[in-house]
Amino acid sequence: MDVEVRLFATLRRGRFDRRPQPVADGCRLEELIRQLAIDPKEIAIRLVNGREAEIDHVLQPGDVVSLFPAVGGG
């Protein structure tokens, strides 16, 4: 199945802005993040279909996954 992945800010570097991503049935969010070669520590906010999602969230076909890094400067 495919999900749509949207990456923001520095997570785009060497990757992409958005694209469909093939994943196995029953794939969890943490497996998708591993598949994208992103260190989970780089990610602050995880949304699935615009809602905050836990790392063990099971993805469904067509889900839109948005990932944001932490920003902390002032």
Binding site: A9, T10, A44, I45, E52, P69, A70, V71, G72, G73
Partner: peptide, 11 residues
């Protein structure tokens, strides 16, 4: 919820 135990960000 945003930062959890993270010490700093991309800055």
């Amino acid at each position: 919820r945003i930062y959890r135990s993270r010490p700093a960000g991309i800055e």
